[in-house]
Amino acid sequence: CHSECLGNCSQPDDPTKCVACRNFYLDGRCVETCPPPYYHFQDWRCVNFSFCQDLHHKCKNSRRQGCHQYVIHNNKCIPECPSGYTMNSSNLLCTPCLGPCPKVCHLLEGEKTIDSVTSAQELRGCTVINGSLIINIRGGNNLAAELEANLGLIEEISGYLKIRRSYALVSLSFFRKLRLIRGETLEIGNYSFYALDNQNLRQLWDWSKHNLTITQGKLFFHYNPKLCLSEIHKMEEVSGTKGRQERNDIALKTNGDQASCENELLKFSYIRTSFDKILLRWEPYWPPDFRDLLGFMLFYKEAPYQNVTEFDGQDACGSNSWTVVDIDPPLRSNDPKSQNHPGWLMRGLKPWTQYAIFVKTLVTFSDERRTYGAKSDIIYVQTDATNPSVPLDPISVSNSSSQIILKWKPPSDPNGNITHYLVFWERQAEDSELFELDYCLKGLKLPSRTWSPPFESEDSQKHNQSEYEDSAGECCSCPKTDSQILKELEESSFRKTFEDYLHNVVFVPRKT
């Protein structure tokens, strides 16, 4: 048989008469490798580009789960590009990614509803959504962080984005990388972005840091009482949809009607710091009717980097990364020049730590249904340095008659930039024990000054392991946590139920 035959053949030295091919099969003959313009397919066939392209389009058009959109890589027609490569849609070739590779997620039936953290986790790592997304989240724990972890990498949506009755959302900033909504599939009414009845939605994105392009379709905003109209108009300008909307697409009466839409800028007039305090004062603000001013709200939190936005980490279910302080308005003076500047002394802060701070007014709604208010920009203030805590785990070892090696770990709280350490030492008198000992005694162990690591005695271990207080009263049991108490109650309830079950099964009433 021919060298490319495997198993047997019907005619000697003829690659077209093989029972099976050793390498690849091409047009009725066995070959060692697939010549151009053919590609290896499933490690035994040679196919042309049209064959591989037909497989790709067949799966793409069917949208069946589990099928493969075949691509070409290293002269092979394979189910998908290997790690580190992405497909070129024009020629199906796998090309190296520039940075992290995109991950295209194809949605069944063309859309997916995100109504819980669990459903959001199914899209973790996706960068391109081939379909439409509907966000409908009523509640949950730590929602802002969970949504950002699972949806934060999405850069492109081919269909539309719909935010509907998501009472738990305060902001859409968890879509931190969303840059493009194509609108290839539109919501009824030709809408590519749809926001309806979101009672706590206050911000779409921080438009000073976020760009969003909507290729096709219109915007729809109705019944978002805490979303200011200025935020919607800003989205029109940034996304390129200005002029597409009709009169009733953006409701003037049901958007922002319960919001404090600040239209003035508060400026800080005085800032002073110490290692654990920050004193702030800002310019006074009074609405047209000074009785509408209820006070100020001061927001602050630790910020290692200057990239904080107002609604980071917030949701309507209680999660809030900001510390909020309510401040009463100052006494009002008739003389504008003698107006008191409101302020606040922030206490209990960490030394040498940068804080993000902003302040906003708290006002009631005027009778004319106009909203007044003022808010400052987010500023960054760093507390002063102070003395560091003591170095940890000092170790001293003498390696000769004239040297001592000293080692330690950095302090747990540096409280500033540590530039150097101060080492103090003092000579001590020799131990009298060394002169009084009889060095001729056998088995004498000389006193040693070398360091030995501390260890816990058996008594201390027994005390720590004991669940009861000892007789001397030195140790006591740790208080039980809520989960331990709940577990004990469940076990007790189970024992009672099981005992009742045994009584009912074992003891049967005697027939009379």
Rank of each mutant, 00 (worst) to 15 (best):
K242A: 05
D312M: 10
I379R: 07
Q121T: 09
G159L: 00
T273Y: 07
Q403I: 03
D257L: 10
L161H: 00
Q216N: 03
G140D: 06
I405S: 14
L201N: 00
R247A: 11
Q199W: 11
Q199R: 13
Y355Q: 00
L349V: 05
E231L: 11
Q354K: 04
G125K: 11
K267F: 10
K360F: 02
F175T: 01
D377K: 12
L180M: 05
S274H: 06
W207Q: 03
E264Q: 11
T371M: 05
I163S: 02
S239G: 14
D115S: 07
E264W: 13
S389Y: 04
S396W: 08
D367P: 06
S402N: 15
L229R: 12
I114L: 09
V359Q: 00
Q354A: 09
L345A: 02
S333P: 04
L331T: 14
W207H: 06
D115V: 02
T383F: 00
D326H: 02
N224H: 14
H341E: 10
E237V: 04
E246T: 10
L133F: 04
F290K: 03
C126K: 01
E236F: 13
N200G: 02
L345R: 04
E122G: 09
N255W: 04
H210L: 12
G110K: 05
T254L: 11
V359S: 01
D393I: 04
I250V: 13
T213W: 05
F220R: 15
N340Y: 08
R291W: 09
P410L: 11
D257A: 15
I378C: 08
L406N: 04
L227H: 01
D276G: 09
F290D: 15
G125Y: 05
P284E: 15
Q314V: 05
R281S: 14
D257T: 00
E246V: 11
I134P: 00
L172R: 00
F175C: 03
S400E: 15
D312I: 14
G140P: 13
Q199F: 12
Q199M: 12
L229Y: 12
N399D: 15
S158I: 13
K242W: 12
S396I: 04
D289L: 03
S396M: 04
D312P: 11
N224R: 00
L123S: 01
H106R: 04
R370G: 15
P304A: 15
A356Y: 00
G343S: 07
N334S: 08
I154T: 06
S321G: 05
T371E: 09
W352L: 08
Y305V: 14
F221G: 03
F275Y: 05
I188P: 04
G243S: 06
A303E: 02
T254C: 05
G243R: 07
V324R: 13
D393K: 15
L298R: 00
I137T: 13
L153C: 12
L143S: 15
N307G: 03
K226Y: 09
W352T: 11
L265A: 03
G159I: 00
S321D: 15
H106P: 08
K253M: 13
C126P: 00
Q382W: 07
Y285T: 04
L201I: 05
E237H: 10
I250N: 14
F299D: 00
D384H: 14
I405M: 01
A374L: 05
A251M: 10
R244N: 04
T371K: 07
L186M: 11
E187D: 15
P410V: 04
T213D: 14
H233M: 01
D335Y: 15
T383C: 04
S376G: 01
R165I: 12
L201S: 00
N255H: 03
L298C: 02
A374W: 05
P304I: 09
E156I: 11
I134K: 01
L298Q: 00
L229D: 06
S192R: 01
I188R: 14
S376M: 01
P388E: 07
T309M: 02
D289E: 03
D384G: 14
G295D: 05
I157R: 00
Q203Y: 14
A251G: 08
E155P: 00
I129C: 09
G217A: 02
S239K: 05
E148S: 06
I379M: 14
E109Q: 14
C317E: 15
K242E: 15
S119W: 02
E187G: 13
E237W: 14
L219S: 06
S333N: 01
E111G: 15
S173T: 08
A168Y: 11
N320H: 10
R124F: 03
S400F: 05
K103E: 10
L279F: 07
